[in-house]
Write a protein that binds this DNA or RNA. Structure first.
Length: 973
DNA sequence: CCTTCTTACGTTTTT
DNA sequence: CGTAAGAAGG
């Protein structure tokens, strides 16, 4: 499903344009590589071609990608195309900008901070701070001490509404190459802050152009936008009255352009400068760098240290995904290029990372920027030594993904007005390189629909599509030339959304109907029950906040509010919980704490795993105490922080993801959902009081002074005029829609609810209205009941799994051939079949399971968590595990454990495992007879096991081993 | 056609 | 809380 999958097969030969790029091994090339044109394929071929010529080695070629994944994939595919092995390319500079800069700083960046006049060093102990929530926390801490130290800025501080907006500003400036030094600004940074009046004047004139009325000119957008100029606002005394400002008609007076632009910003610049510089120093002092500073220091170092720059420069520089680069990244590429063998590849139509400071003009106006940047970099010293006049443009035009209908349709999206009144510059069409399809069929459906309940409408449509040959998709099986069409499955459908929330809602809604849906992408990990309980236990461990923790834990355990209150007041916490707390307190690492908490509650899902690995990864060092972690969890919860969680149910399911997450992927059928007002495009925008915007530079919208003889936060009348000229940009929203459409191979559908957005209404399609009619696919209503057998948690237990009682050696000399994955699949089938899901057996083992389960009357309990407390040498130990199946009838309970083994070699060991289950189950069902059996799926043989006594089991426990030593999955297969 | 009022909204995510 | 799009009013 990755980009270029259609071209990964080596049997494909490059097309003419691809070949041109592969052969273009010298000179400057800018490659317009549209969606699905085999970009990665071509780049890796080009790279291999360079190596084959003999005089170029891997270390002479810098290949920059956008993500670490892409870098890894590039390496693999280069290896597939040339004589080098993976190990030979291990150290090859195929990397992201950040990754490469990190390496460079570690190797040569010791005194890079001195380039900004900061007297500190980057050392091998300097950490890269990756987590945003933690950085914001540090930044707040920094700001507090900054305010303390700078009384002269107290007024400036009053203008701020939110501390982190300043951190964002710093990162934005860093991405533009604007850095502070102890004496002012690095190189010509200050001119960026001042802005460019000429450019602004152009925008001003544009906004001030009279509109065409029915009879003659009507007022300009600018004049219109300035109505109500004084409404609900208080300006400083030098502000003009609305009447004066809007004196002219149909335009306002030209002179306002310079009056609004020219402003004394020395105080503002000094304020931002000092915070910026001192924050960098603060970070170094605390031994960390953020992603922005990584690039900043590398750039400063390469700029100023001429011999270093020359020594690291490359013969060839190749940048992939160039539409996602920021300005400083473009400049870094130039500094790293020793010759004019510079090749950038990208597609401006897929530039959707503006909020991460990607600058689409890097590729759209490549030549212009190249010249400007060369001039800037060479101002005082020749850093870019090669000529930049001769730029070759190559456009890849053959698309290997979509039908021609979809490709043609996708171009509309780039010119759709995104508001009722917006006019889109039609010249954009001239920049579009039309793509040519290579598919054999052109059977596409392109349609739009609405439904009052959009979620239901989408699910209804999905059910109509799946299995319907009208929505046939290409069957790209392994046979070389197929071109056959087949009816779609759930797997073929992807629902794309602009914002995450809609996708998550749809996922929940689909789950109600039993429609298989896999949400892919970042998940709100901190709002989960797992996270809340972990936080609660950590609070209990931290004594200051322990009551808040206890309240959550007690409530979860089923105490009523009154009971909770009573326990909190008296401090009489249940002894088993106190014992658990003490056991937690003994854990060495945060990962150990988290795992113990999740074991206690039986969480062994993707969320628990995600949390364990996240906290373990974030707090691996000993520098953090539990208070830090509590704060981290609180902040993350507060900030709705998201995190990637591997929660793919697998199997045949609909994909739901954001457009951003879908970039680079392809799907046979795409449903572009939630095209509603204020959702796509989203409403709102930055309300930051201090901001940087091209071309007006650094500005503030409010200022705290005592003008009018009264201290107040006055509005800036200049800012109001300037912001009216800048307006809101919807180009990126159109590109997002473009990306969504071009993910589709065969069919595209657009959906909206009750109030479609202009983007939807302006589609050249006639929307149909879908009456919701979702069929419930959950069979028989056999809901999986949450039933948990629990035995009171003993004092001071240390946990073990039944696995630890067993002797692994019986498994080691067996050549089974089926493997663990097979076992997992059979167990999954058995679990789902027992719960009444409509699953079909695919192997003889599964058919045996089916026959077996069909023969059993009564009730099933599936995957029961059990724990058995035992005492060994006076020490409490809990053995926890999961029973595959409990077969419950009126007078008996049967334990069934599936085994996929071909032979019986391990039965003696399994006896220990199922004996644990026996004692727990007997305890839970004291009135019924309990039988313990193993079901061998290979031959359908059910074997009764005579359980060991508790005393026997206790004899098997090795007290030296704690739960930290065992694997994550206590399940025994 | 122009102005004023009302109402509804608050994103995306990799390094 | 501040913004901006659309509706209503003049």
């Amino acid at each position: 499903m990755t980009e270029d999958d259609s071209t990964t097969m080596t049997e494909y030969e490059p097309n003419d344009r691809q070949q041109e790029l592969i052969d273009a091994t010298s000179g400057i090339h800018v490659v317009d590589a549209g969606a699905g044109t085999g970009k990665t394929f071509t780049i890796t071929r080009r790279y291999a071609n360079l190596l084959e010529r003999g005089d170029v080695e891997p270390e002479d070629i810098l290949l920059i990608t956008f993500t670490n994944n892409a870098a890894g994939e590039m390496k693999e595919r280069v290896v597939a195309n040339c004589d080098y092995s993976m190990s030979a390319l291990r150290d090859a500079p195929i990397n992201t900008f950040h990754g490469y800069c990190h390496d460079l700083l570690i190797r040569h960046g010791f005194d890079a901070p001195t380039r900004l006049g900061i007297d500190d060093r980057i050392t091998s102990s300097t950490q890269l701070l990756e987590n945003e929530v933690i950085e914001e926390d540090r930044f707040r801490e920094f700001l507090d001490q900054f305010i303390e130290a700078h009384p002269e800025y107290h007024d400036s501080f009053r203008t701020l509404n939110d501390a982190t907006s300043l951190l964002d500003l710093i990162k934005e400036l860093a991405a533009k190459g604007v850095f502070p030094t102890n004496e002012g600004w690095f190189r010509d940074g200050e001119s960026f802050l001042d802005g460019d009046y000429e450019e602004f004047k152009t925008l001003f004139d544009e906004a001030n152009e009279p509109n065409e009325g029915a009879n003659g000119a009507t007022q300009s957008d600018l004049r219109d936008g300035l109505s109500g100029f004084e409404r609900d606002r208080c300006y400083e005394p030098d502000a003009p009255s609305e009447g004066k400002l809007r004196d002219g008609y149909p335009q306002i007076d030209d002179a306002w352009a310079s009056r609004a632009f020219d402003e004394d910003r020395d105080d503002l610049k000094a304020f931002v400068h000092d915070i910026y510089l001192e924050y960098i120093a603060f970070a170094l002092q605390r031994n960390y760098l953020n992603f922005s500073f990584l690039l900043m220091f590398t750039f400063a170092m390469l700029c100023e240290d001429h011999s270093l720059r020359e020594s690291v420069q490359f013969d060839h520089v190749l940048v992939d995904e160039f539409q996602d680069t920021s300005e400083i990244q473009f400049k870094l590429a130039l500094l790293l290029a020793g010759t004019d063998n510079l090749c950038v590849v990208g597609d401006w139509k897929q530039s959707i990372y503006g909020f991460q400071y990607a600058s689409v003009d890097n590729i759209r106006r490549f030549e212009e920027r190249l010249r400007t940047y060369k001039r800037e970099l060479n101002g005082d010293h020749t850093r870019v030594e090669f000529p930049v006049d001769d730029v070759n443009e190559i456009a890849l035009v053959e698309n290997y993904r979509s039908t021609q209908s979809i490709l043609d349709f996708s171009e509309h999206s780039l010119t759709l007005p995104a508001t009722g009144s917006e006019g889109v510059d039609p010249e954009i069409r001239d920049d579009i390189t039309s793509l040519a399809a290579t598919t054999e069929h052109d059977h596409s459906t392109i349609e739009a629909f609405t439904g009052e309940d959009e979620q239901a409408a989408i699910l209804t449509r999905i059910q109509e599509i799946v299995g319907n040959r009208e929505y046939a998709v290409e069957d790209d099986g392994d046979e070389a030339d197929d071109g056959d069409l087949r009816a779609p499955t759930y797997d073929d459908v992807a629902v794309l959304t602009r914002t995450r929330d809609f996708g998550r809602e749809l996922q929940a809604c689909a789950a109600d109907y039993g429609i298989p849906v896999a949400y892919e992408g970042g998940v709100e990990l901190f709002g989960t029950e797992q996270s809340i309980l972990l936080l609660a236990w950590l609070r209990i461990l931290e004594h200051e906040d322990s009551k808040r923790g206890w309240a959550v834990v007690l409530e979860e355990a089923g105490y009523t509010l009154d009971e909770v209150k009573h326990v909190l007041d008296t401090g009489a916490y249940p002894t088993s919980m106190v014992a658990f707390r003490d056991r937690l307190a003994a854990a060495e690492t945060i990962g150990g704490i988290a795992r113990r908490v999740f074991d206690r509650y039986g969480f062994d899902d993707a969320y628990a795993d995600g949390l364990v690995s996240l906290v373990q990864g974030t707090f691996d060092s000993t520098h953090h105490n539990r208070g830090d972690i509590v704060r981290f969890l609180e902040r993350s919860l507060d900030a709705d922080a998201t995190h990637e969680v591997a929660d793919n149910p697998g199997g045949d399911s609909v994909t739901v993801q954001t457009i951003h997450a879908a970039k680079g992927l392809e799907h046979p059928i795409v449903i572009m959902a939630n095209m509603n007002q204020h959702r796509f495009p989203p409403a709102g925008g930055g309300a930051d009081r201090i901001r940087y915007e091209e071309p007006v530079g650094l500005r503030q919208s409010k200022r705290y002074t005592d003008a009018h003889g009264r201290p107040h936060l006055y509005d800036s009348w200049r800012y109001r005029i300037l912001s009216r000229c800048l307006g809101r940009e919807y180009d990126e929203e159109r590109r997002l829609l473009y990306v969504a459409i071009t993910r589709a191979e065969s069919h595209v559908l657009f959906s909206a609810g009750e109030s479609p957005s202009p983007l939807f209404e302006n589609l050249p399609l006639e929307p149909s209205v879908v009456e919701p009619d979702v069929k419930d696919v959950a069979v028989g209503g056999t809901e999986r009941t949450q039933f948990r057998i629990s035995v009171p948690v003993p004092e001071m237990p240390s946990g073990q799994s039944p696995h630890s009682l067993m002797d692994d050696r019986v498994f080691s000399d067996v050549e089974d051939g089926k493997g663990m994955e097979f076992g997992t699949r059979v167990h999954d089938f058995a679990e789902r079949y027992a719960m009444g899901e409509a699953v079909e057996p695919t192997t003889p083992d599964e058919r045996n399971v089916q026959t077996f389960l069909d023969s059993l009357p009564g009730e099933f309990r599936v995957e029961e968590h059990v724990s058995l407390p035992v005492s060994v040498d006076g020490q409490q130990v809990t053995i926890a595990g999961i029973v595959d199946l409990l077969h419950v009838t009126d007078d008996r309970v049967a334990i069934v454990d599936y085994k996929t083994d071909r032979g019986r070699h391990a039965e003696a060991e399994y006896r220990k495992q199922v004996s644990v289950y026996y004692h727990v189950v007997q305890h839970a069902y004291p009135d019924r007879g309990v039988t313990t059996t193993i079901y061998y799926t290979a031959d359908g043989d059910r074997v009764a096991i005579d359980p060991l006594s508790i005393a026997d089991l206790e004899g098997l426990v090795d007290v030296g081993e704690t739960d930290d030593d065992r694997g994550d999955d206590p399940r025994i297969r």
